[in-house]
Nucleic acid binder design. Structure first.
Lengths: 189, 189
DNA sequence: CAACAAACAGTCAAGCCTGACTTTTTGTTG
DNA sequence: CAACAAAAAGTCAGGCTTGACTGTTTGTTG
C-alpha cells in the first residue's frame, strides 16, 4: 500500500515537474509516507523510479485494454483504432514515460532497466495494434505500416507535450487511417 | 568567439549528460571559459540554454540544407528525401533538441522561449519538405501526409535515442516512401 | 504474553549547483 | 599615453538534494 502510494506519487511528480524536479523528499511528502519508510522500500532514487516504470507499464496496458473494448466495428474501425492510439500517446501516461525515456538516455543504470522494459511494452503494443486492426502481417509492407503507425503516434505525442495539438493530431490521423486502410485492403475483414 | 564556444559546449553537454546533468560550471570548464566570462554573456542557466536553442536551430537548418543538395532526382527521390529526414532526426542534433523539449515541458520560462522557436522551425521544416517532395498541398490530404511524415521521423528519432534503431528505421521509411508516393501521385514532378 | 523482526518515522551531514561579488585584464577613446 | 569602460577571471556563500543513521511502532511467532 505504501509502495503503491509512493509509485503513484512518483509518477505524478514526473508528469508535473519532470525527472530532475522529482526529488525523493518531494515524493515521500506527496505520498504521505515518511522518509524512512520510503528508503526502506526504495533505497535510492533510481530504485524508486525504475519501480515506477514497472507500475506505469501496467497502467499503460490497462488503459489501452479498456479503450480497446469500446471500439466500433465496421469501416470506421481503423480510424477509431488510430485515434485511440493517438489519444493514448498524448496522455499524461506518455508524459511520464517520456521523462523516463529521456532521463535514461544519459544514465546507464536507468537505461539498463528502462531499455528492455520499453522494448517489451513496444512489442506488446505492436501485437495489440495488429490484432485491433485485423492486419495480416504476411503481406509485404503491412508490418512496416503498423510500426510506422506506432512511431507516428509517438511523434505526435512528443509534439503534444509542448503545446496542445489535439486538432492537428485528429486531422493527421484521420488522413492516415484512410491511407492505412488502402494498404491493408483485402486483408481486413 | 567565447559566446560560440559556450554554446557548443552547452550542446555537447546536453547530448552527453542531458539537461539536468548540464551544470553551468561544467559548461564553462568545457568551453575553456572562465566562470565570470560565462556569467557575463549568460547571467543564468536558462539564458545559456535558450541561446543554445537558437544556435542549434541554425545548425539544424545548415545540416538539412547541405543534405538536401545531394538528393537525386527521378523516381527514387521521395525515398531519399524521407531517409534524409529520418537520419536527421536520429542525429545528436535531435538529442539536444529533445533534451530542451522535455526540459521546457516543466519549466515555464524555458517553454516561453522554446515553444515559439520550435514552432517556427517546424513550419520551416514543413516548407522545406513540401519543396523537396514537390508536393501539391492544394490536393486534399497531401498536407496531412507531409505533416505525418515529419511526425513519423520525430517518433523514429525518439525511439532511436534509447537503442540504435537504424535498420528498422530504414525499412519503415522505405515502405513509407512508397505509400507517400502513391498519395502524392499525379502531383509530383 | 514476551521477544524479536520488519516496517516506519525523523534528523542530519556531506556534496553539489547556482548566481552574486570582487579583482584583474583588455581595449578604446580623448 | 592616460583614463575609463567592457570583458574576463576567480572566489564564495546560500540553498537544495541525497542517502546514512538512530529511534519508534507494529505485528508475528513461540
Amino acid at each position: 500500500m505504501m509502495r503503491a502510494r509512493l509509485l503513484e506519487a512518483t509518477l505524478d511528480c514526473l508528469v508535473e515537474r519532470g525527472f530532475a524536479g522529482t526529488s525523493t523528499t518531494l515524493v515521500s511528502e506527496r505520498a504521505g509516507v515518511s522518509r524512512g519508510a520510503q528508503l526502506h522500500h526504495f533505497p535510492t532514487k533510481n530504485d524508486l523510479v525504475v519501480a515506477a516504470v514497472e507500475h506505469l507499464t501496467e497502467r499503460r496496458g490497462a488503459e489501452l485494454a479498456a479503450a480497446a473494448a469500446t471500439l466500433p466495428d465496421g469501416p470506421r474501425r481503423t480510424r477509431a483504432v488510430v485515434q485511440m492510439l493517438g489519444d493514448h500517446f498524448a496522455s499524461p501516461v506518455f508524459d511520464a514515460a517520456l521523462e523516463l525515456w529521456v532521463a535514461a538516455r544519459s544514465d546507464e543504470h536507468l537505461l539498463a532497466a528502462v531499455g528492455p522494459l520499453e522494448q517489451r511494452v513496444g512489442r506488446e503494443t505492436h501485437r495489440l495494434t495488429v490484432e485491433l486492426l485485423g492486419a495480416d502481417e504476411s503481406v509485404p509492407g503491412v508490418r512496416e505500416m503498423v510500426q510506422a503507425t506506432l512511431d507516428l503516434v509517438r511523434g505526435l505525442g512528443l509534439a503534444n507535450t509542448i503545446s496542445d495539438d489535439t486538432r492537428r493530431r485528429r486531422r493527421i490521423l484521420d488522413t492516415w487511417a484512410d491511407t492505412l486502410d488502402t494498404v491493408l485492403k483485402g486483408t481486413t475483414r
